[in-house]
Amino acid sequence: MNDMLDITFWQLLSAYVFIVILLVIVRWRKIPREKEILIASIRMTLQLVLVGYLLTYVFENVHVVYSIAILVVMEVFAVHNIFSRSKLALSRELKKVIALSMVTGTLVTIIYFDFIVIHFSPWYDPRYLIPIAGMIIGNSMTGITLGVSSLVEGFKSNKHLVESALMLGATPNVASKKIVNHAFDSAILPTINSMVGMGIVFLPGMMTGVILSGASPLDAIKYQIAIMLGVTGSVSLTVILFLYFGYKTFFNKEAQMKN
């Protein structure tokens, strides 16, 4: 699988011309974004270089502890990212629910993939585990983020309707049904849309990678289909877990709305 062309240092450097063009345009249009663009390109470069060395090391020294440590870092980063991307304040309880559903939902999917769909061995082989876990965790993170903002926003703007439903003797579950369903919908819609566009609108990164590394497109799509299904499963699972436990954090034991 090693018939991929090598990119020389100078060739890689020449690709930064796109950033230079962007900087020129931004300066010309007087859009105050130069700093962000510079920081973003530098971060991207540094992070990838680091990951490159890290993965090289981990691939050459396969060990269960390394694989698990990377998995833990990915989960922690993902959960942290969900918290920081929410524009509305999240309660402690809701944060706990986010973390738990994120970890449970993605781990279940990763384990299923690991032992049934691809079944690589050893089960902690980083060459498979890390990219697959990365895609599953990353997509679930995006899904939950959307679900969180839809749920919090929904309770905020429909407070009166939820409270009125309670007044009429609705259980908290029934009173928040609309909000929860809407949150689920907005959380999984992007995943469904990306399945629709798959292969026509864009070639997903994973498939591109597999093809570039010299594998046949038919092998590449098999992986892509499996991953896409796994991503859909994981997004649904994490979002359902999050919503099922998350809506309850808006009510207290007396079936009253909090503040």
Partner: peptide, 22 residues
């Protein structure tokens, strides 16, 4: 406090000041 809050609200129904339209 000894009553189940949901069951209580089904016996003692409340109508809010701003009408709730679903």
């Amino acid at each position: 406090g000894e009553f189940d809050p949901v069951l209580l609200r089904r016996e003692v129904v409340m109508l809010s000041q701003a009408p709730a339209i679903f």
